[in-house]
Design a binder for these strands. Sequence first.
DNA 1: ATTTTAGGAGTGAATGTTCACTCCTAAAAT
DNA 2: ATTTTAGGAGTGAACATTCACTCCTAAAAT
Lengths: 191, 191
Amino acid sequence: MATSEKRQEILHAALELIAEHGFHGAPIASIADRAGVGAGTIYRYFENKDVLITELFRELHDKIQMALLEGYKTDRSLREQFLHVSTALLRYLIANPLDFRFLEQYLNSPYGVAFRRGRLLGTGDDNDLFRMLLEDGVARQIVKDLPLVVLCALTIGPLLAVSRDHILGFIDLDNALIMQTVQACWDGIKR
Amino acid sequence: MATSEKRQEILHAALELIAEHGFHGAPIASIADRAGVGAGTIYRYFENKDVLITELFRELHDKIQMALLEGYKTDRSLREQFLHVSTALLRYLIANPLDFRFLEQYLNSPYGVAFRRGRLLGTGDDNDLFRMLLEDGVARQIVKDLPLVVLCALTIGPLLAVSRDHILGFIDLDNALIMQTVQACWDGIKR
DNA sequence: ATTTTAGGAGTGAATGTTCACTCCTAAAAT
DNA sequence: ATTTTAGGAGTGAACATTCACTCCTAAAAT
């Protein structure tokens, strides 16, 4: 097995275990087992467990940003762009339930708070499509003049919540329901 | 110290520690210390840690339902009732940050999933004001005809998210912002 | 071409720590 | 005197991390 493969195996094993059983259910020993490596090997690739998990999140975040850009047209109306990105996010999350579950675990932990804090204090030029869209909408007076974090709460919040409900089997998020949900989010933030 | 006081001390100590440091930061020994009792004493009042935490949530849930009923008028329009309840929820959460932080920890853990599952499969006659309001709105065609869980996602989701942002210091949820946020939630679900 | 050597990736048993929970003693209540 | 309650040291299990060791590969020496 090549070196980079081994690294990926470890990341993937950690993702699966955390997604399936939460942080509690993902001891290093289990991650090593599932990745097919020795426990000590993990520490050749990652300084410690925290670094492993943070790195996992970073890669996932990038991957999702890429997915949101798929089919994104810069010449559409803001509303259409919002609907596109939101729909893409929902589709990604329900197509990749393991990614979603991990993301949720992460964001609802001390890791996530640190991430959010860094994000908000950042310069704003990071690659967060959602955030840019909302800021643009406020500037052009298409979206309600509310703080960015409130707009995020009104959009990303529900999107994550319905994804969870779908993955847990509480609802069946088919195409029609996805569109209705995304539209409802837009109704909430539009002027 | 009377028996019931001791029980309350234990519950309160657990609430504080979990709110401040998460489940990880609330070992039995610390809970006992903060409550001013011996570790063994806790097991005289609660079968195990799970029962203690579940009980804590149950009491908190009841307390919040009571707070939502404060000043609730049955003769107002659905919209006004929704705004009232949502505003009351926001006010309660930002006035009781420890309660909020605990609630969040709980709902985003395996406990919370179990709770939500029980809730959705239940008969619907439990004392959940929010849920009743939304169901009523759908029946009277005032609210979008979406599954109940989606409507919950569109309302409770953002409310919890902005509360968190306020408590973490990312925004200042003053009266004006509370009203705007609640109104935005309504805009999202109204027909 | 064959053997020797070096280096570093990989390992998992051992370590020290933390945890939920138990159990026995002592104090308080009856 | 007897029963009930409280306490906290003790217990074993689970955990992240370490470290002394084992390969394996590929370069160097012959």
